[in-house]
Amino acid sequence: MTDVRPYFVPGADAVTVSDWSQLVDGTWESLGEEVENWDYRTDLRLRCAVEADVARIRADTHLTDGSPLAFHFGWRASDTYLVGPSTRVPLVNRQFDVEIEIDPQFAGASIVLTRRLVLERDRFSPRAGEASRAGSILWSHEQPLRLMGQEALFPTEVVDFEAFGIDPGASWHLVMPASPDEPAMGALLLLLNPLDTKLVKAVQRVKNHSDEQLALIEGMEEGVVDEMVRWSLAHWDELGECDPESFGAAARTLTSRVLDEPAAWASDAVLRSSMDLRSSIAAGTRAIGFGRSLS
Rank of each mutant, 00 (worst) to 15 (best):
L23V: 03
L23Y: 03
L23C: 06
C48G: 12
L31H: 13
R45A: 11
G26H: 06
W28P: 07
L46F: 08
V35T: 06
C48D: 02
E33L: 10
R41D: 12
E36Q: 09
D25N: 15
L31T: 08
V35Q: 02
D39G: 12
C48Y: 05
W28D: 05
T42S: 08
D25K: 14
Q22I: 09
E33H: 06
G32V: 08
E36Y: 04
Y40V: 14
A49P: 00
V35F: 01
A49V: 02
E33K: 06
D43V: 02
E36H: 08
D43H: 08
E34N: 09
D25A: 13
W28H: 07
V24K: 07
S30G: 14
E36P: 01
E29C: 09
D25G: 01
R47F: 01
E36M: 05
E34K: 12
R47L: 06
L23N: 05
L31W: 10
W20V: 05
R45E: 12
D39Y: 15
W28N: 02
L46N: 09
D39F: 13
S21P: 00
S21N: 12
R47A: 12
L44A: 04
E33A: 14
D25M: 03
L46P: 12
D39P: 09
G32D: 14
L23E: 13
E34W: 15
W38Y: 14
R45S: 09
L46H: 07
R45L: 10
V35E: 03
